[in-house]
């Protein structure tokens, strides 16, 4: 599993939202997209559900058939559109 972009090495894209974010640092709620493999990480997220593990609701999981099927476009698109991070699980 790897986090595509870490805070300190983010791709320089969101020129417009930077300032907004600085203004409201305290109530910052990151929006994260997770691209997860059907066979492992997605199943893992299911298991988190069946075991009622609680985690923060900032992530939206997208099922792919293999983490190898994650086109970099799927990472860049949400980042450019304003996501704060993309997590690829596989």
């Amino acid at each position: 599993m790897s986090v595509a972009l870490k805070d300190n090495e983010r791709l320089p894209v969101e020129e417009f939202t930077d300032e907004v974010r600085q203004q409201s640092q305290q109530d910052f709620e990151p929006r994260i997209i997770g691209l997860v493999c059907n066979w492992c990480s997605y199943a893992g997220a299911d298991l988190a559900g069946t075991s009622r593990a609680q985690y923060s609701p900032n992530i939206r999981l997208v099922r792919v058939m293999c983490s190898g099927a994650v086109d970099p476009l799927y990472i860049l698109r949400p980042i450019i559109d304003g996501a704060d991070g993309v997590l690829v699980g596989g």
Binding site: D46, G49, T50, R52, A53, P57, R60, L61
Partner: peptide
């Protein structure tokens, strides 16, 4: 869309946010 394992079961104390998440998904 998986709004049980991926939302209601894992965000049970945050009804509003779980609802928003379900809408997004």
């Amino acid at each position: 869309v998986n709004i049980r394992e991926h939302s209601s079961w894992v965000h049970k104390d945050e009804c509003d946010k779980a609802t928003e998440k379900a809408k997004d998904l």
